[in-house]
Simulated assay, not measured.
Amino acid sequence: MVTKIKKVSLIFCSAALVFAAAGCVGSADPVEPTPTASNPTATASSSPPTTSSSPSIKPTPKPIPASSTGPAKNWPVPVMPDAAKKNTEAGIKAFTEHYYELVEYTIQTNDTKPIKKVSKRTCLECGNVFIDPFDNNKKAGSWMTGAEFNVTVTRAILQLPQGISLYTTTQGEMNLFMSDGTLQGTFPATPKPAPLMMILRFDRGWMVESVEYLDEDS
């Protein structure tokens, strides 16, 4: 049974804090057609070109990953797999993995709308670590790169309408850039997996109620 909860914060929490900063068109006279003894016969070569009435299809903008020149642009929002929509233990596992795909997307883009849809504001860690810092980064013009996550769900417990996910994560290296492109800091990858617990509630889909960081001997 999980009993011990350690009050810690993710490395990238401090990293995400916003620092104060500051051709010519021609014309021609019409030419009279040459008279002939008989009525002209229309041919394919004399027919006017067919103009398509269907609108042209706009090309899909090319995704640009986050880099030293700016946050990710046109980055695809992770699509929730069908398995993550089910109120089953397998659904809890799939949702946990999907949630951290949204965390990565948020860090790369400063777009918090997708993760807000599956996070309750009662989840303090969700707000303080996964959402608010990146809303602030967007306002300030700063951004981050890196922070790939590797999530391993060790146990999923279904107690409808709630679910519990016990899992570990590792986090890749991150860089914080200011609005003028200055590298503010580099934050190393986590040295080993960190144990966490996620409390979920199912209401036409899973929502995160809380995220807790656990002692390793829990």
Rank of each mutant, 00 (worst) to 15 (best):
I5R: 02
L10T: 00
I11C: 01
I11Q: 00
A15P: 01
A15C: 11
L17I: 13
F19W: 08
A20Y: 09
A20E: 07
A22D: 09
C24F: 13
D29E: 07
E32F: 11
P33C: 12
P35M: 11
A37I: 10
T41M: 11
T41P: 01
P48W: 02
P49K: 11
S52P: 00
S53M: 03
K58C: 09
P59K: 09
T60Y: 00
P61R: 03
K62M: 13
P63H: 13
I64R: 01
S67I: 07
S68C: 00
G70T: 12
V77T: 15
P78R: 05
D82G: 10
A83I: 05
K85G: 03
T88K: 06
I92H: 09
A94Y: 13
A94K: 06
E101R: 03
I107D: 00
Q108L: 15
N110T: 11
N110H: 11
D111G: 13
T112K: 06
K113P: 01
K117V: 10
S119D: 05
K120A: 15
R121K: 14
L124M: 11
L124E: 10
E125N: 00
C126H: 03
F130Y: 12
A140S: 13
M144C: 07
M144R: 04
T145E: 07
N150F: 08
I157R: 04
Q159C: 05
S165Y: 13
Y167K: 02
T168M: 08
E173C: 03
M178K: 09
M178A: 15
M178C: 05
G181N: 00
L183R: 02
F187E: 01
P188Y: 11
P188E: 08
A189S: 13
L196V: 02
L196P: 01
R204C: 08
M207Q: 07
V208T: 08
V211A: 04
E212Q: 14
L214C: 03
D217L: 12
